[in-house]
């Protein structure tokens, strides 16, 4: 781990109309870190990710990746980032090979390298027999795998994963978890957004908890545990003000009376 942060976020704010979604967010992320980014629905998680990946070009504050300002040269930053979006958006009338060829070429990759890498990755993910099938016949898990591959095909420094395990079976989940560890050993920085606390707990070096547009906890799982509770689930519940679950379940049970 080096001392200069790879991603620096300074006073990042974003509002939709009168609603302030991000409130002066400031963050430093170092190379090789696996960041677990968690928070309740509507806390501003997706907005942060969308700003980082260039989906939302308008925001206040400063985002610097690898010494480059996001406002100044977004394209140079996008080259260093691989993004796996939450809602499995891809052109499903294409075959995986066609889609990966397209995406890879947008990153300016050479055809030879691209084809070879796409085939290797697809086979490694168990899609070797579906290279040339249209993706509209694919299951959700298969599409998710193609999406994952399209996020790492150009061998990016930073990988942003938004709920990457949805639709995957248990074996694939184990594989992805291992993959995240291996990628981080290779020096990749990984930004992992999820609602699955047990997975976040296991894969992350550092956990960021965002609530109502502000980071309310930042540290390793161990340090969070000491301050608050014994599992990440409890930490989450406690910090986001949901510790009165008893009364909620009471109300549910009482509704049958």
């Amino acid at each position: 781990m080096s001392d200069t942060p790879l991603i620096q976020i300074r006073n990042l704010s974003k509002s939709y109309g009168a609603k302030l979604v991000l409130k002066n967010l400031s963050l430093d992320i170092y190379p090789g870190q696996v960041i677990g980014y968690i928070g309740p629905n509507g806390a501003g998680k997706s907005t942060t990710v969308k700003i980082l990946t260039g989906l939302i070009p308008e925001f206040n504050g400063e985002v610097i990746v690898d010494g480059i300002s996001l406002q100044h040269d977004p394209q140079e930053i996008k080259k260093r980032i691989g993004y796996v979006p939450e809602n499995a958006e891809l052109y499903d009338v294409l075959t995986p090979m066609e889609y990966l060829d397209f995406v890879g070429k947008l990153y300016g990759m050479e055809e030879e390298l691209l084809t070879a890498r796409a085939m290797k990755l697809l086979s490694a993910f168990g899609l070797g027999n579906n290279l040339n099938d249209r993706m509209d016949t694919f299951s959700k898990g298969m599409k998710q795998k193609v999406l994952l591959i399209s996020g790492i095909i150009h061998n990016p420094q930073i990988i942003i994963l938004d709920e990457p395990l949805s639709g995957l079976d248990a074996n694939a989940v184990i594989m992805i978890k291992e993959l995240i560890m291996r990628l981080s050993q290779e020096g990749k920085t990984i930004f992992y957004c999820s609602h699955m606390m047990d997975v976040v707990e296991k894969v992350s070096d550092r956990i960021l908890l965002i609530n109502k547009g502000e980071i309310i906890a930042d540290g390793t799982f161990e340090s969070l545990k000491q301050n608050h509770a014994d599992t990440l689930e409890r930490v989450f519940a406690k910090l986001t003000g949901r510790n009165e679950t008893d009364s909620e379940t009471d109300a549910i049970i009482n509704a049958f009376d």
């Binding site: 990946t53 996008k78 080259k79 993004y83």
Partner: peptide, 14 residues
């Protein structure tokens, strides 16, 4: 087509 937002924007396309 909203998918363009997710597929093209995160790539280095100006």
């Amino acid at each position: 087509d909203v998918r363009d937002q997710y597929i093209l924007l995160p790539r280095p396309v100006n």
